[in-house]
Design a protein around this nucleic acid. Sequence first.
DNA 1: GTCGTGACTAGCC
DNA 2: CGGCTAGCCACGA
Length: 103
Amino acid sequence: MALSKFGNSVLAALKLIPPGKVTTYQEIAKYLKRPKAYRAVGNALNKNSYVPKMPCHRVIRSNGQIGGYAFGKTKKIKLLEQEKINIKQDRIINFSKIFLKLK
DNA sequence: GTCGTGACTAGCC
DNA sequence: CGGCTAGCCACGA
């Protein structure tokens, strides 16, 4: 399925995130030269939520919360914990430590 | 071309 | 700390 140019860029940013690290919608938006398009970023991911080819579960909110996930935030939390990321009540514990700053 | 929607964010109370 | 509001962007109908 073909993605929009914007969506493709979002996936590209996603691939830059190594295991055990996470980033925020805002960082991706900035990386795409559109710091205020964080909404569009989430929108793009939601519409392309298929398969682990894109680690969308490594993208969280700027306040450290999980945010959402097409397969359910519970699933997202499980995947994150699998990456050694500690989560408590939909919130990342060591958020600042695993946060990956793009560009 | 316009409207509604959403995995968001920052500000204010 | 928690809840509400307004602003922002891309996409589909």
